[in-house]
Design a protein around this nucleic acid. Structure first.
Lengths: 334, 334
DNA sequence: TTGTACGCGTTATCAG
DNA sequence: CTGATAACGCGTACAA
């Protein structure tokens, strides 16, 4: 399909043109062993005049190195994950390709993509799992491609493979505590899907803070799914009764949905109601009023992930590392 | 590196286990020609018990099809491009991988990435070029991998390969016109880098609208580089004299920078000053006041791009298509 | 319907 | 230092 009769230029053509063997060409190209200067020049000349490009598939087949890493995240268009990817890119060499895919928070789609990705086309897989594929993931890591888990860490995989995650429990704990400290009497919590380890841990953190610092707080909960729409629905739900004095959304997208809904209902954030979000909201600082949030710094997380990947690439049998990154609390004021 | 002594499971192992030939296994796996039911079952059984995964590199080497498309954009973290990618993903088959890279608006980096990507690892390249690599791109397309240009269309490449771009001239024209119609007397324009075809065309569109509809408008210009920071600098620049009655930023990021700076200076957008943006601003509608903008619909553009890719994949010699998509004007009101 | 055997483009091993 | 040549894992003529 690529060629229509027209053959590709191969290392053989270069060898013939330069009057050397394919082995010598390969050595010049990879610097794998010394070659006489004159031949080096002849080869380089042949390469440029012929417009030769090495064939990645052949090289991968031979060396068992793909020079690529795979990245599988639940939502490719979530700025949080994009920043992580950007961070990974920051630290990887330029000739390393990023093979990306998005599971759309769908376990089945994730499984299919895991199969495609495990066809030996990547050297390492960075995965923020949608959940439900622990066995498949374990298999891939054990007898296939090393896996680095990010963001989500299913219990059964902890300490089995490398991971870089946030300290969801304590970050959520501190977020809730900072709101409790304002003296609120009632609080609405918008949860993520409990199948995601992050959602569960954030929920636990909130509840722990409440138990310790405000056991008599009137708490109402809504169980969303990390989407903007579920944040909107949560607010509609809360407003069926008296509005709580504060509201806390356990991810950025739900926070956007919830806050926009509140604004539409005439609430002034920070005055009529206190708002908290796990994760910053893009551009919020420009237009919004007060917001308390967990500052996630995804790009930094990405860089750290990149370094973990490199380490694993260098030594497949290095000790498993589990990074748990503590986040900062932030407050925007207009 | 991948294996440490441990051989991979190949089609040969499957064949031996199932007691058939490798050819039969291949036929079962690809459905390339009929196989007796009993053998099909034996093979499938062998595949699952052995945990066999086809080797993508070997298949690519043999078939000259990579089952992957490359995407090279100037900024991987710009939501605009992410939505385009999402759109492409929407229409591509699940077993098609996306190989992504970001040139960071840097011609040299783009060139290196183009080289890496042209190593026969993708079947088609979707490219939003940073400029300055026209010759390389032409070569890749002509005797290598078909290229689909998106967003940016260098003059020398127009009608040479497929393209999907916006109607930058007329969209900018209409944006400017809609602001002129408000009866403003002065306008500040924030341009992008003239090396990008989009920036140039948008500038032309604005100027044409002014010549036609308000030749005596007091116009001031600032030449930015599509970054948020340059939008901020533009406003600082304009405010050294009397503020213009209206301001227009010719991409989304510069608009964010400009508007936030204006807000910091105490301006109320839509009241003290009219604001226009080429491209919507994420979440603006939720918190901001009035804004006139060109609605880009990148996801739709992405889907269209995906279809162009598929068409090109089916017939390498199909006629070249150039899609120029007209955008809508939008206005947000609080 | 099935099996044999060759070649895709590289790198690596082994002689020279 | 250099050159033959054997793999790498797969698909596919060709033969049976």
């Amino acid at each position: 399909m690529t060629a229509r009769g027209r053959r590709n230029i191969t290392i053989k053509d270069v060898a013939r043109y330069a009057g050397v063997s394919t082995a010598t060409v390969s050595r010049v190209l990879n610097g794998s062993s010394p070659v006489k200067d004159e031949l080096v020049e002849r080869v380089q000349h042949a390469v440029t005049t012929l417009g030769y490009h090495p064939n990645a598939a052949a090289r991968t087949l031979k060396t068992r190195k793909a020079n690529a890493i795979g990245i599988l995240v639940p939502d490719i268009s979530n700025p949080y994950f994009m920043q992580i990817i950007k961070g990974i890119e920051d630290v990887m060499a330029l000739d390393f390709s990023l093979l990306m895919a998005s599971s759309d928070e769908d376990s089945n789609k994730e499984k299919k993509l895991l199969n495609v990705l495990s066809e030996d086309r990547i050297d390492c897989l960075v995965l923020a799992t949608a959940g439900g594929n622990d066995e498949v993931i374990r298999t891939i890591d054990e007898k296939g491609i090393p896996v680095v888990l990010i963001d989500r860490l299913p219990e059964s995989l902890a300490n089995v493979m490398d991971s870089v995650v946030e300290d969801n429990f304590w970050s959520a704990y501190e977020l809730a505590q900072s709101m409790i400290n304002l003296g609120i009497k009632s609080l609405g919590i918008i949860h993520g899907p409990m199948s995601a380890s992050t959602a569960y841990q954030r929920a636990s953190g909130c509840m722990a803070a409440i138990r310790q610092h405000a056991p008599r707080l009137a708490v109402r909960e809504y169980f969303g799914d990390f989407t903007l729409e579920s944040g909107e629905r949560a607010v509609e739900h809360f407003l069926q009764e008296d509005a709580p004095e504060a509201i806390i959304a356990l991810n950025n997208l739900m926070a956007v949905g919830a806050i926009s809904k509140l604004i539409k209902h005439g609430f002034v954030i920070g005055k009529d109601i206190v708002a908290g979000s796990y994760g910053a909201i893009e551009n919020y600082l420009l237009f919004g009023s007060s917001l308390r949030y967990v500052e996630q710094e995804p790009r930094t997380l990405g860089k750290l992930t990149g370094r973990v990947v490199q380490r694993r690439l260098e030594d497949r049998h290095a000790e498993v590392v589990s990074h748990v990154v503590k986040q900062q609390l932030g407050i925007t004021v207009k």
